[in-house]
């Protein structure tokens, strides 16, 4: 794609497989996407859709074995992260690509003070001495809205509340001014009022710091509020990818549509009965030869069982993996002749 800002991350045809006693699980299948400078890419999917494994594969943070990255390229600043040696990767992780995980209690080390954990990346990656790191650590805690920052550096993770711990995690991730921040369900374990605080903080920090963010979540409400672009995953594949407005206003994949219809709202009209997606997500024993959503799809036709649809462009930066993506205009004829972007 020639348009838009420069890419900071370009993922091509990523495939990750888990080897288990009962056989292989193809968790990530031919996933390709890019991330532009300064944008927030939301990644939506249910558990088992491959969203976390994809992002952990990017920086080889998944335990191998059982996981095995079969193929793919992850281009970051002219390097392929799947090819670089471990030392180079360690210099990138935590310094140029930061992470925030779902559960701040298990991702912070309980036996070290928060200050120690904040200083560690600063001293390791930025070559700061103890005093400089201390000052920067306090600045970071202040940045994420923790009051009395200098004193709280001496506290241990258990002395912070859930929301505060997540702020600490964000501060650690931001310590070395990363170009990319990967946040895996960072607000899922939090209460809504605390989640609102964190979302507000992320909006502020984006304006101040301008890094690109990948935000993994299953909550479409959160995505609608913060993302620039959204990628929907199902059965280890990307099924739809679009700018946030296009995705919510004119979703093209039957799964995206169904997902948007099943969720109840707190505002507006109350549905008499919830729409349901029947069945369950698939377990991927082999590389899929058919559309992973076909068994639950309301509009599936014969070809869906034969061929796994590839992602293709249906509008401006809008890609869909569905055999019927063009057929929904009503008329069944001449879909191929339709100009791209007609629906957006």
């Amino acid at each position: 794609m020639p348009d838009g800002a420069p890419k900071v991350l370009d993922v091509r045809n990523l495939n990750t497989v888990f080897r288990t006693r009962t056989g292989e699980v193809h968790a990530v299948n031919r996933v390709s996407f890019d991330l532009e400078k300064g944008e927030l890419l939301g990644v939506v999917g249910e558990s088992g859709s491959g969203k976390s494994v994809t992002m952990m594969s990017l920086i080889r943070l998944i335990p191998s074995p059982p996981a095995e990255i079969r193929s793919g390229q992850v281009l970051f600043d002219g390097m392929d992260l799947l090819e670089v040696d471990d030392d180079t990767l360690r210099d990138i992780r935590g310094a140029r690509i930061g992470f925030v995980f779902q559960d701040p209690m298990t991702s912070l080390n309980p036996v070290f003070t928060v200050g120690f954990q904040l200083r560690e990346p600063l001293m390791r990656h930025m070559g700061m001495n103890r005093r400089e790191a201390d000052r920067r650590a306090a600045e970071l805690l202040e940045l994420v809205g923790i009051p009395d920052a200098a004193r709280r550096l001496r506290d241990y993770p258990h002395q912070f509340s859930g929301g505060m711990r997540q702020r600490v995690m964000i501060a650690i991730a931001l310590a070395c001014d990363p170009e990319v921040l990967i946040a895996d369900e960072p607000t899922t374990a939090l209460d809504v009022t605390i989640q609102a605080q964190i979302l507000e903080l992320v909006r502020e920090l984006r304006q101040k710091l301008g890094m690109a963010i990948i935000w993994i979540t299953h909550d479409l409400g959160v995505i609608a509020g913060i993302a620039d672009r959204v990628m929907v995953m199902y059965g280890g594949q990307v099924v739809e990818e679009a700018p946030v407005r296009a995705l919510f206003k004119s979703p093209r994949h039957p799964y995206t549509r169904a997902l948007l219809e099943t969720i109840p709202h707190v505002r507006g009209k109350r549905a008499e009965r919830l729409e349901v997606i029947e069945g369950q997500p698939p377990i991927l024993g082999a590389a899929p030869k058919a559309c992973p959503f076909r068994d639950r799809c309301a509009v599936a036709v014969e070809i869906c069982g034969r061929e796994n649809p590839a992602l293709r462009e249906v509008g401006a930066r809008h890609r869909v993996a569905c055999h019927l993506a063009d057929a929904d205009t009503g008329a069944g004829s001449g879909t191929g002749a339709e100009p791209e972007g007609a629906h957006v």
């Binding site: 609102a196 409400g221 959160v222 407005r245």
Partner: peptide, 25 residues
């Protein structure tokens, strides 16, 4: 009110003007 206004709505066009962000825990 604060609780309801904190619920994120799956609609990118909706900006909740009077969103109440509670301070503290």
């Amino acid at each position: 009110r604060a609780l309801l206004s904190a619920v994120p709505e799956p609609d990118p066009d909706l900006t909740i003007e009077d969103r109440i962000i509670l301070k503290g825990d």
